[in-house]
Amino acid sequence: MEILDLSKFCMRLGDSCLILAHRQSEMCSKGPFLEEDIAQTNLGLDLLGQAEALLIYSAKLEGKGRTADDLAFRRPEREFYNFMLTEQPNTDFAFSVVRQYIMALYLGKVYEALAKVDDDVLSGVAAKAVKEIAYHERHLGMWIKRLGDGTEESHERIQIALNELWMFVGELYEEDDLDLKLQEAGYAISGEEMKAYLMEKITAQITEATLSIPESVYMTTGSKKGIHTEYLGFMLTEMQYLQRAYPDAKW
């Protein structure tokens, strides 16, 4: 594995955290009640912290003199490598819960492997993130169960969210050449292992919540090549507004 491979790997992971954090930040002030509003915002803050650490490291390994801010605010849509799942909008509370829950499962497993690698920066970031993500899984899992096994309305809405988002799950265990190199170096688990883990966890949680796994077989692909759904562009327009309108602005 070459140093640039590791840089790219960190960028992919950092991008997923960043975009997920931004989506989560949009929930600020829109929670169903005050306590949950704070909880949702806290989830976003955890992810933003992880994104920052990963993008700082990615930029450093890349060695082109870019900073984490450059990566976040000066790349166009096609140069972002976050999973399509992370950019899906907060259509309603159920969508946010499903999106964040599935990503929490994924990130938990990724960080678990990274916490053991022989790289002080990455293992340090991962060791801290594992604890944060464990809480995300618990909190969001609670909501999956609560909404699924709640009222007729909440059950229907979260089943719809699950159905609509399901096609984006395939990317989480898809592998390309870079993934294989990282796996060989012991930085990541195989796609097969990830798929088995996700399916087992999701199935258990969904069943407990009286929901059902969608039957759709079509899974999207492309975010590892910078291909995205229509939503990312709109999000970046807002997220990168300041740098686009006032390049190099300082305050």
Binding site: F33, L34, E35, I38, A39, N42, Y135, H139, M142, R146
Partner: peptide, 20 residues
């Protein structure tokens, strides 16, 4: 204090407000 509908939600909400 916090608002919550049951024990599990109460301890999670309390965690988010008071122990971070």
């Amino acid at each position: 204090s916090v608002h919550a509908f049951d024990k599990e939600m109460a301890i999670q909400n309390a965690r988010d407000l008071y122990t971070r």
